[in-house]
Amino acid sequence: MNKDIYFEDVNIGDSIPTLVKEPVTKLQFVKYAGASGDFNPLHTDDDIGKMAGIGGVIAHGMLIMGFVGQAVTNWIPKKNLKKLNVRFAGMTKPGDTISVTGKVVDKNAENNIITCEVFAKDQNEQVKIQGSFEAKLPKKN
């Protein structure tokens, strides 16, 4: 799935390939609850979401972090990923279309590690996640 990406091929300012997800659904939140074991009813019960004053269910932040992990490992082989950090910046509601974008912000030639910033945003450019990751890339020789 991944093509080999070498340290020399990556430059500061390069964009990582954008991942555009299907709109998130309530069914997906139920599936994610069961898979992850996070049964906070804010993600699966509209009544609880209404009581909490947010109108209905919202996505698990970790589901959106999962999208970020997907975008990163679509580009960089999983084994090269060394760090992934995110800050949850906003709520995601059913029907929102999340896109994950990012770019290279640093390269360290001493340890072959690249640092990238990454964002998950909805169709209105509202930021859901702001984060970063580090990957150790092979050198050509």
Binding site: M1, K21, E22, Q28, K31, Y32, A35, L63, G66, F67
Partner: peptide, 25 residues
Amino acid sequence: KELVQAIGDKNPIFQDREAATAAGY
């Protein structure tokens, strides 16, 4: 598998042993 299917991540290294070994895992 359940987790990547909920996320919608179709990378086969998370679900298929042959794909994972072919990728060096």
